[in-house]
Computed example of a mutant assay.
Amino acid sequence: MNMLIIYTHPNHQSLSYAFLEEVIRGSRENAAVHDVKILDLYEEGFNPVLVFNKNKRRRDMHSDPELEVYREQLRWADKIVFVYPIWWGRPPAMLMGYIDQMFASGFAYKDKGKLLPEGLLKGKSVVCISSMKGPALYPLFWLNNAHKILMRKALFQYVGIKQVKFFEFGNMESPRGRQQEKLNKVYRYFKSLAG
């Protein structure tokens, strides 16, 4: 399988970066993973700001030449892995800006005049690895699982991706957060991942 890892954190000394390293390490030790590409949105200088005006229309975003390299990465990937922190109950604005631009009509889905569109990214799968300062059950009990619902239903299912796996780790700034245990869990998952 071809794997695209989309990393979204401005600090390479962060726990998010440690998770990225474990994804890479596990994937490189897995014979089912043919190739791995990494997109570091901050290092890349990705511009998350949407611009629409008389020269740049929203309905043409699926063919914006400035975004073609990113569309090609998504076309190429069998598995898309997102590594990011949870800030204010949701992914960072940088990642949301990427999603706003990349999962555009005409590329990720096609309106068919029905209740739901036709997802154009069928056959791909996603893994989301996120960490947060708050307790592990905070998103479930306080936010009604908003993060997972946003990612799974409002985004991935909408564009035809049905297989979505979450690693959502809480208490990550606590000395009792069992960070190494969680890093090992991610490494083992990617090392044993079937194609």
Results as ranks from 00 to 15, higher is better:
Phe141Gln: 10
Leu67Trp: 04
Lys79Glu: 08
Asn55Asp: 12
Pro117Tyr: 05
Phe82Ala: 02
Asp40Gly: 11
Leu116Asn: 12
Phe103Trp: 07
Glu43Ala: 15
Glu66Lys: 11
Tyr42Val: 10
Val83Asp: 07
Ala77His: 06
Leu115Ala: 14
Leu120Gln: 05
Tyr98Glu: 02
Gly106Asn: 05
Pro117Val: 08
Met96Ala: 13
Pro65Val: 04
Arg57Tyr: 00
Leu41His: 02
Phe82Lys: 00
Trp76Leu: 13
Arg58Val: 04
Gly123Gln: 09
Glu72Asn: 15
Asn53Ala: 10
Tyr42Met: 10
Tyr109Ser: 08
Ile161Ser: 02
Tyr70Asn: 02
Pro139Ile: 04
Glu66Asn: 10
Leu50Arg: 14
Met132Thr: 00
Ile80Tyr: 00
Ile149Tyr: 09
Glu68Trp: 01
Phe82Val: 04
Ser131Cys: 10
Ser131Tyr: 00
Arg90Thr: 09
Ser63Met: 13
Val159Thr: 03
Leu115Asp: 11
Gln101Leu: 14
Phe107Gly: 01
Lys79Trp: 01
Ser105Asn: 13
Tyr98Lys: 01
Leu143Trp: 03
Asn144Phe: 07
Gly89Val: 02
Tyr98Gly: 04
Leu74Cys: 06
Trp88Val: 03
Arg58Lys: 08
Gly123His: 11
Leu41Ala: 09
Asn145Leu: 08
Lys153Gly: 13
Val127Cys: 02
Ala146Leu: 01
Lys122Asn: 12
Glu68Pro: 03
Ile161Val: 12
Ser105Phe: 04
Cys128Arg: 00
Arg75Cys: 13
Tyr138Val: 14
Ala104Leu: 05
Ala93Val: 07
Ile129Lys: 00
Val83Tyr: 05
Lys114Glu: 14
Tyr70Gly: 03
Arg57Ala: 06
Met96Lys: 11
Glu72Gln: 15
Gly134Trp: 00
Trp87Phe: 13
Leu115Val: 14
His62Glu: 05
Gln101Lys: 13
Val81Met: 06
Glu68Asp: 11
Lys56Trp: 00
Glu68Gln: 13
Ala104Cys: 08
Lys122Pro: 09
Leu39Asp: 02
Ala154Phe: 10
Pro135Thr: 05
Leu120Pro: 03
Pro139Thr: 05
Pro92Leu: 06
Pro135Cys: 01
Phe141Ser: 11
Gly160Tyr: 01
Met132Trp: 00
Ala108Tyr: 01
Lys133Phe: 04
Gly113Ala: 06
Val164Lys: 03
Glu66Val: 09
Val159Phe: 03
Asp78Ala: 12
Lys79Val: 08
Arg152Phe: 11
Leu50Glu: 13
Lys153Pro: 11
Phe156Ala: 01
